[in-house]
Protein backbone atom coordinates (compact mmCIF):
# COMPACT_ATOMS: atom_id res chain seq x y z
CA UNK A 1 0.00 0.00 0.00
CA UNK A 2 2.77 2.49 0.83
CA UNK A 3 5.23 1.86 -1.94
CA UNK A 4 3.71 3.87 -4.82
CA UNK A 5 4.46 7.38 -3.51
CA UNK A 6 8.05 8.29 -4.21
CA UNK A 7 9.10 8.81 -7.81
CA UNK A 8 6.35 10.41 -9.84
CA UNK A 9 3.80 11.87 -7.39
CA UNK A 10 3.56 15.60 -6.67
CA UNK A 11 6.30 16.54 -4.21
CA UNK A 12 4.21 17.82 -1.31
CA UNK A 13 0.41 17.57 -0.97
CA UNK A 14 -1.42 20.67 0.34
CA UNK A 15 -1.88 20.35 4.10
CA UNK A 16 -5.62 20.93 3.82
CA UNK A 17 -5.85 17.88 1.55
CA UNK A 18 -4.05 15.73 4.06
CA UNK A 19 -6.41 16.83 6.84
CA UNK A 20 -9.54 16.26 4.74
CA UNK A 21 -8.22 12.92 3.56
CA UNK A 22 -7.60 11.91 7.16
CA UNK A 23 -11.20 12.82 8.03
CA UNK A 24 -12.38 10.61 5.19
CA UNK A 25 -10.23 7.72 6.41
CA UNK A 26 -11.57 8.06 9.96
CA UNK A 27 -15.09 8.11 8.55
CA UNK A 28 -14.49 4.74 6.90
CA UNK A 29 -12.54 3.38 9.84
CA UNK A 30 -15.07 4.15 12.58
CA UNK A 31 -17.70 1.54 11.67
CA UNK A 32 -14.94 -1.06 11.45
CA UNK A 33 -13.72 -0.11 14.92
CA UNK A 34 -17.29 -0.38 16.20
CA UNK A 35 -17.53 -3.84 14.70
CA UNK A 36 -14.20 -4.93 16.15
CA UNK A 37 -15.11 -3.55 19.58
CA UNK A 38 -18.26 -5.67 19.64
CA UNK A 39 -16.67 -8.82 18.27
CA UNK A 40 -16.92 -11.76 20.66
CA UNK A 41 -13.33 -12.88 19.95
CA UNK A 42 -13.30 -15.89 22.28
CA UNK A 43 -16.44 -17.42 20.73
CA UNK A 44 -15.64 -16.40 17.19
CA UNK A 45 -14.85 -19.86 15.86
CA UNK A 46 -17.81 -21.58 17.50
CA UNK A 47 -20.18 -18.84 16.28
CA UNK A 48 -19.00 -19.26 12.71
CA UNK A 49 -18.75 -23.05 12.70
CA UNK A 50 -22.30 -23.81 11.69
CA UNK A 51 -23.90 -25.34 8.65
CA UNK A 52 -25.98 -22.19 8.09
CA UNK A 53 -22.85 -20.04 7.89
CA UNK A 54 -21.06 -22.51 5.59
CA UNK A 55 -24.09 -22.66 3.27
CA UNK A 56 -24.37 -18.87 3.18
CA UNK A 57 -20.66 -18.52 2.48
CA UNK A 58 -20.77 -20.95 -0.43
CA UNK A 59 -23.89 -19.34 -1.88
CA UNK A 60 -22.43 -15.84 -1.59
CA UNK A 61 -19.24 -16.99 -3.30
CA UNK A 62 -21.13 -18.63 -6.17
CA UNK A 63 -23.56 -15.74 -6.63
CA UNK A 64 -20.93 -12.99 -6.50
CA UNK A 65 -18.60 -14.71 -8.98
CA UNK A 66 -21.54 -15.50 -11.26
CA UNK A 67 -22.47 -11.81 -11.12
CA UNK A 68 -18.95 -10.79 -12.11
CA UNK A 69 -18.87 -13.33 -14.95
CA UNK A 70 -22.25 -12.34 -16.37
CA UNK A 71 -21.51 -8.64 -15.92
CA UNK A 72 -18.23 -9.02 -17.79
CA UNK A 73 -19.65 -11.10 -20.63
CA UNK A 74 -22.53 -8.73 -21.41
CA UNK A 75 -21.34 -5.56 -19.65
CA UNK A 76 -18.08 -5.08 -21.57
CA UNK A 77 -19.84 -5.20 -24.97
CA UNK A 78 -22.47 -2.82 -23.61
CA UNK A 79 -19.76 -0.45 -22.39
CA UNK A 80 -18.07 -0.65 -25.80
CA UNK A 81 -21.32 0.17 -27.61
CA UNK A 82 -22.00 3.08 -25.24
CA UNK A 83 -18.48 4.44 -25.70
CA UNK A 84 -17.99 3.88 -29.43
CA UNK A 85 -21.33 3.76 -31.23
CA UNK A 86 -23.21 6.99 -31.71
CA UNK A 87 -26.87 6.07 -31.82
CA UNK A 88 -30.18 7.68 -31.07
CA UNK A 89 -31.23 7.01 -27.49
CA UNK A 90 -27.73 6.40 -26.18
CA UNK A 91 -28.33 8.74 -23.24
CA UNK A 92 -31.47 6.79 -22.46
CA UNK A 93 -29.63 3.47 -22.49
CA UNK A 94 -26.94 4.89 -20.24
CA UNK A 95 -29.65 6.12 -17.88
CA UNK A 96 -31.11 2.63 -17.88
CA UNK A 97 -27.75 1.23 -16.81
CA UNK A 98 -27.78 3.68 -13.90
CA UNK A 99 -31.24 2.52 -12.82
CA UNK A 100 -30.07 -0.13 -10.34
CA UNK A 101 -27.90 2.51 -8.65
CA UNK A 102 -30.85 4.87 -8.32
CA UNK A 103 -33.51 2.41 -7.22
CA UNK A 104 -33.48 1.37 -3.57
CA UNK A 105 -32.43 -2.31 -3.77
CA UNK A 106 -35.70 -3.46 -2.23
CA UNK A 107 -37.61 -1.66 -4.98
CA UNK A 108 -35.26 -3.12 -7.57
CA UNK A 109 -36.00 -6.57 -6.15
CA UNK A 110 -39.75 -5.96 -6.30
CA UNK A 111 -39.41 -4.72 -9.90
CA UNK A 112 -37.53 -7.91 -10.77
CA UNK A 113 -40.33 -9.88 -9.12
CA UNK A 114 -42.95 -8.11 -11.24
CA UNK A 115 -40.89 -8.77 -14.38
CA UNK A 116 -39.34 -12.19 -13.84
CA UNK A 117 -41.49 -13.75 -11.13
CA UNK A 118 -43.90 -16.59 -11.76
CA UNK A 119 -46.65 -14.04 -12.49
CA UNK A 120 -44.29 -11.48 -14.00
CA UNK A 121 -44.44 -9.89 -17.44
CA UNK A 122 -41.67 -12.16 -18.72
CA UNK A 123 -41.65 -14.69 -15.92
CA UNK A 124 -45.19 -15.95 -16.53
CA UNK A 125 -44.66 -17.02 -20.17
CA UNK A 126 -41.33 -18.51 -19.11
CA UNK A 127 -43.00 -20.46 -16.31
CA UNK A 128 -45.77 -21.69 -18.57
CA UNK A 129 -43.34 -22.78 -21.26
CA UNK A 130 -40.67 -24.39 -19.09
CA UNK A 131 -42.00 -24.68 -15.53
CA UNK A 132 -38.99 -22.65 -14.38
CA UNK A 133 -39.53 -20.45 -11.31
CA UNK A 134 -36.70 -17.95 -10.81
CA UNK A 135 -37.52 -16.54 -7.35
CA UNK A 136 -36.77 -18.73 -4.31
CA UNK A 137 -33.88 -20.37 -6.18
CA UNK A 138 -30.16 -19.77 -6.67
CA UNK A 139 -31.04 -18.33 -10.10
CA UNK A 140 -33.04 -15.66 -8.35
CA UNK A 141 -30.06 -14.80 -6.15
CA UNK A 142 -27.73 -14.55 -9.15
CA UNK A 143 -30.19 -12.37 -11.07
CA UNK A 144 -30.74 -10.03 -8.12
CA UNK A 145 -27.06 -9.48 -7.33
CA UNK A 146 -26.15 -9.14 -11.02
CA UNK A 147 -28.86 -6.52 -11.55
CA UNK A 148 -27.55 -4.43 -8.69
CA UNK A 149 -23.83 -4.84 -9.35
CA UNK A 150 -23.41 -4.75 -13.15
CA UNK A 151 -23.63 -0.93 -13.47
CA UNK A 152 -20.30 -0.65 -11.66
CA UNK A 153 -18.63 -2.65 -14.42
CA UNK A 154 -20.35 -0.92 -17.32
CA UNK A 155 -19.66 2.59 -16.06
CA UNK A 156 -16.04 1.88 -15.19
CA UNK A 157 -15.24 0.20 -18.51
CA UNK A 158 -17.12 2.79 -20.55
CA UNK A 159 -15.13 5.57 -18.89
CA UNK A 160 -11.89 3.76 -19.71
CA UNK A 161 -12.90 3.15 -23.33
CA UNK A 162 -13.66 6.83 -23.80
CA UNK A 163 -10.14 7.67 -22.69
CA UNK A 164 -8.41 5.20 -24.99
CA UNK A 165 -6.70 6.88 -27.92
CA UNK A 166 -8.70 5.49 -30.86
CA UNK A 167 -5.74 6.07 -33.22
CA UNK A 168 -4.11 2.90 -31.86
CA UNK A 169 -7.17 0.93 -32.80
CA UNK A 170 -7.29 2.68 -36.17
CA UNK A 171 -3.65 1.84 -36.82
CA UNK A 172 -4.22 -1.83 -36.00
CA UNK A 173 -7.28 -1.94 -38.23
CA UNK A 174 -5.37 -0.30 -41.11
CA UNK A 175 -2.77 -3.06 -40.78
CA UNK A 176 -5.50 -5.58 -41.48
CA UNK A 177 -6.66 -6.61 -38.01
CA UNK A 178 -10.35 -7.50 -37.74
CA UNK A 179 -12.68 -5.86 -35.20
CA UNK A 180 -12.41 -8.67 -32.68
CA UNK A 181 -8.61 -8.84 -33.02
CA UNK A 182 -8.33 -5.07 -32.52
CA UNK A 183 -10.45 -5.29 -29.39
CA UNK A 184 -8.54 -8.27 -27.99
CA UNK A 185 -4.98 -7.21 -28.91
CA UNK A 186 -5.17 -3.40 -28.70
CA UNK A 187 -8.20 -2.17 -26.77
CA UNK A 188 -8.34 -4.80 -24.04
CA UNK A 189 -4.72 -4.36 -22.87
CA UNK A 190 -5.25 -0.61 -22.67
CA UNK A 191 -8.43 -0.85 -20.57
CA UNK A 192 -7.15 -3.86 -18.60
CA UNK A 193 -6.66 -2.08 -15.26
CA UNK A 194 -10.06 -0.40 -15.53
CA UNK A 195 -11.73 -3.67 -16.41
CA UNK A 196 -10.13 -5.28 -13.37
CA UNK A 197 -11.24 -2.36 -11.20
CA UNK A 198 -14.78 -2.65 -12.57
CA UNK A 199 -14.83 -6.38 -11.88
CA UNK A 200 -13.65 -5.86 -8.32
CA UNK A 201 -16.26 -3.16 -7.68
CA UNK A 202 -18.92 -5.41 -9.16
CA UNK A 203 -17.84 -8.31 -6.99
CA UNK A 204 -17.76 -6.15 -3.86
CA UNK A 205 -21.26 -4.82 -4.51
CA UNK A 206 -22.53 -8.31 -5.24
CA UNK A 207 -21.12 -9.93 -2.12
CA UNK A 208 -22.78 -7.30 0.09
CA UNK A 209 -26.16 -7.24 -1.67
CA UNK A 210 -29.16 -7.60 0.62
CA UNK A 211 -32.32 -5.74 -0.42
CA UNK A 212 -32.83 -6.94 -3.97
CA UNK A 213 -31.87 -10.49 -3.01
CA UNK A 214 -34.32 -10.84 -0.13
CA UNK A 215 -37.11 -9.23 -2.13
CA UNK A 216 -36.65 -11.20 -5.35
CA UNK A 217 -35.14 -14.49 -4.20
CA UNK A 218 -36.49 -14.75 -0.67
CA UNK A 219 -34.62 -16.09 2.33
CA UNK A 220 -34.17 -19.79 2.96
CA UNK A 221 -31.06 -21.16 4.65
CA UNK A 222 -29.17 -23.44 2.30
CA UNK A 223 -31.15 -22.26 -0.74
CA UNK A 224 -31.23 -18.49 -1.10
CA UNK A 225 -29.72 -17.20 2.14
CA UNK A 226 -26.52 -15.31 1.29
CA UNK A 227 -24.15 -13.96 3.95
CA UNK A 228 -25.86 -10.54 4.21
CA UNK A 229 -29.23 -12.26 4.67
CA UNK A 230 -27.74 -14.51 7.34
CA UNK A 231 -26.37 -11.42 9.07
CA UNK A 232 -29.79 -9.79 8.99
CA UNK A 233 -31.53 -12.82 10.49
CA UNK A 234 -28.80 -13.23 13.11
CA UNK A 235 -29.08 -9.55 14.02
CA UNK A 236 -32.64 -10.22 15.14
CA UNK A 237 -31.73 -13.03 17.53
CA UNK A 238 -28.07 -13.26 18.35
CA UNK A 239 -26.02 -10.16 17.93
CA UNK A 240 -22.76 -12.01 18.57
CA UNK A 241 -23.42 -14.25 15.58
CA UNK A 242 -24.31 -11.21 13.48
CA UNK A 243 -21.11 -9.45 14.48
CA UNK A 244 -19.00 -12.53 13.83
CA UNK A 245 -20.60 -12.98 10.39
CA UNK A 246 -20.08 -9.32 9.53
CA UNK A 247 -16.45 -9.58 10.52
CA UNK A 248 -16.10 -12.64 8.30
CA UNK A 249 -17.51 -10.65 5.37
CA UNK A 250 -15.20 -7.70 6.05
CA UNK A 251 -12.20 -10.03 6.29
CA UNK A 252 -13.00 -11.78 3.00
CA UNK A 253 -13.70 -8.54 1.16
CA UNK A 254 -10.67 -6.68 2.48
CA UNK A 255 -8.42 -9.63 1.64
CA UNK A 256 -9.71 -9.82 -1.91
CA UNK A 257 -9.65 -6.06 -2.47
CA UNK A 258 -6.15 -5.57 -1.07
CA UNK A 259 -4.71 -8.58 -2.89
CA UNK A 260 -6.25 -7.58 -6.20
CA UNK A 261 -5.11 -4.03 -5.80
CA UNK A 262 -1.51 -5.17 -5.37
CA UNK A 263 -1.62 -7.58 -8.24
CA UNK A 264 -3.66 -5.90 -10.94
CA UNK A 265 -4.56 -2.38 -10.04
CA UNK A 266 -1.09 -1.07 -9.40
CA UNK A 267 -0.61 2.23 -11.24
CA UNK A 268 1.84 1.71 -14.09
Amino acid sequence: MSRAQSSHGPSRPPIAFVVLAAIAVVFFLLPLIGLLARTPWSDLVSLLASEVVADALVLSAIASFAAVTISTVVGVPLAWVLARVDFRGRALVRGLVLLPLVLPPVVGGAALLFALGRRGVVGEPLYEATGLVLPFSIWGVVIAVTFVSMPFLVLTVEGALRNVDVRFEGAAASLGAGGWTVFRRVTLPMIGPSLAAGMVLTWARAIGEFGATVTFAGNLAGETQTLPLAVFVALETNRDTATALSLLMVAISLTVLVLLRDRWLRPQ
Binding site: P151, F152, T156, E158, G159, N163, P193, S194
Partner: peptide, 16 residues
Amino acid sequence: AASTLRYGRLRVVSAV
Protein backbone atom coordinates in the same frame (compact mmCIF):
# COMPACT_ATOMS: atom_id res chain seq x y z
CA ALA B 1 -2.54 7.88 -23.43
CA ALA B 2 -1.66 6.09 -20.23
CA SER B 3 -2.13 9.11 -18.01
CA THR B 4 -5.48 10.13 -19.47
CA LEU B 5 -6.59 6.56 -19.13
CA ARG B 6 -5.72 6.49 -15.46
CA TYR B 7 -7.36 9.82 -14.88
CA GLY B 8 -10.47 8.59 -16.64
CA ARG B 9 -10.65 5.48 -14.52
CA LEU B 10 -10.24 7.43 -11.34
CA ARG B 11 -12.89 9.87 -12.39
CA VAL B 12 -15.41 7.16 -13.12
CA VAL B 13 -14.61 5.20 -9.99
CA SER B 14 -14.96 8.28 -7.82
CA ALA B 15 -18.13 9.36 -9.58
CA VAL B 16 -19.62 5.94 -8.94
